[in-house]
Design a binder for these strands. Structure first.
Lengths: 256, 256
DNA sequence: CTGCTAGAGTTGGTGTACCAACTGGGTTGG
DNA sequence: CCAACCCAGTTGGTACACCAACTCTAGCAG
């Protein structure tokens, strides 16, 4: 009864089109009818049709572009397995994921010394302004940007070691686990805290996001015991990823 | 240079307002200027202002309602810690989370026998149409719905046991770990696969979502070894949650 | 003082209109 | 045969307008 018939025309138009899309009677990639066609079908003005299309776009169901009819968006996300991730680096597991769905992986990076801001300092338990090594990654699949990663490592720990620059030296691209293990600080835990929201315009540009696509923001912190080894901000397009986390349950003890 | 000045007026208006919101010069909860005021400020029509407000709403930055000026939305998410979750039930850890931010937790449930659909059967490695016990939860904080959970347990495992109905008996509300442990099938792992997207209208209604709020969809599967014990679909409003997952890194072995 | 009412003010839904930007396909020219 | 070009068709941005629904406040009645 609740959605028997939406009160507003634009919602009814959107509902009709959405039903066809979800039922696949409008196939992914296929074109929607013309603005004028839809308007005459429902006996409304093109303004109302536009509002309906705005809604569908905001739900991430269609692609729009000037000059050609809206098309049904396709959805084929990668799966990011956190467990795999923390055996090797931000590049290699990404490659593994991409290959699994027949996409060509690639990533670029940019490493430079930096000073810790408020947020980073807090996460790494260091002082504001302390030296950190910052590495920015952009991961691509089929040359489309998929994921942005900004990683910070305290130079107080890595300075002078072979892993001072994450993407150089013998362990280049080897991942935080192996890298820190090599200097005697094997990480013991990685904590990821994530949420989703709609992107800012700058993020839309960087990830080439289409309208209606949320982003997932991950804040990662890696520890050796209580000592923070690394932290990162990871931003990914929600329509291109599923995230998998496995929790191992502790064996039975004598805990109430 | 990329966003020095957006080409379109409505983007510039949105950017100006967004800056004020993010910089907190427009405080959360405060009112935005009138449609007419904004229009005259920027020298445009109210149509364009409306489009700018549509954009801000789609980013989840403002609340709108007929008859009163749009207001700046506040953001104060709960933190859902997966690790804590899998020591007790879908109710108790939720309570823990809610209390941490001074909200009053509550949840309702509805248990009934059901038959496995295609998706659920696949996840539980049982046949389509096999008997399952289905429990739907709605979790509230301050009487606002926050999370929807649909849980399925194969009756082939639980039938006739004290835990056949999750929310009844001595272990009512005790959580899947303790419950299955009590019948000799202590879960060994819980796998959560999640993604974010914009909600469907029915979900908007159930979670009383405001426009511009993505939802996070979690597919959970609990195992004892290779045996699936339970699966659930969890739906939560992205603006009300941060999700935390901790990965414990295996101690050093002789693995390349 | 409280409660109700009426009215002003504001927003949301819809219609109409115009133009620039862009797509796609057919046509022309090399 | 291929490339450049042009044109019809379509969408996106913007302006103006009208009305219903709603909020809020001031004023009135009790």
């Amino acid at each position: 009864m609740s959605d028997g018939e939406p009160a507003h025309m634009y919602e009814r138009i959107a509902a009709a089109l959405r039903d066809q899309i979800l039922a696949r009677s409008l196939a992914p990639g296929s074109k929607l009818p013309t603005r004028e066609e839809i308007a005459s079908t429902f006996g409304t003005s093109q303004t109302t049709v536009r509002q309906a299309l705005d809604l569908l776009e905001s739900e991430g169901l269609i692609n729009r572009g000037r000059g050609s009819a809206p098309t049904v968006r396709l959805y084929d996300p990668l799966i990011r397995r956190a467990a795999l991730h923390y055996r090797s680096d931000p590049g290699a597991p990404f490659a593994e994921e991409a290959i699994a769905t027949e996409r060509v992986p690639r990533y670029s990076h940019n490493t430079r010394p930096d000073r810790a801001g408020l947020e980073v300092a807090h996460r790494l338990k260091i002082g504001v302004g302390d030296d950190v090594m910052r590495t920015d990654y952009v991961s691509y699949a089929n040359d489309e940007p998929m994921m942005l990663t900004n990683s910070y490592e305290p130079l107080a720990i890595t300075r002078g070691t072979p892993i001072e620059r994450p993407e150089e030296g013998p362990l280049m691209g080897a991942g935080i686990i192996d890298r820190f293990t090599s200097i005697g600080l094997r990480p013991t835990s990685v904590v990821e805290r994530l949420h989703a929201r709609m992107p800012r315009p700058s993020e839309v540009e960087e990830l080439k996001l289409r309208p209606g696509i949320p982003v997932v923001v991950i804040v990662r912190r890696s520890f050796c015991g209580e000592l923070p080894l690394e932290t990162a901000d990871i931003l990914l397009a929600a329509n291109q990823y599923k995230l998998e986390y496995a929790t191992t349950v502790a064996p039975l003890e004598d805990d109430a």
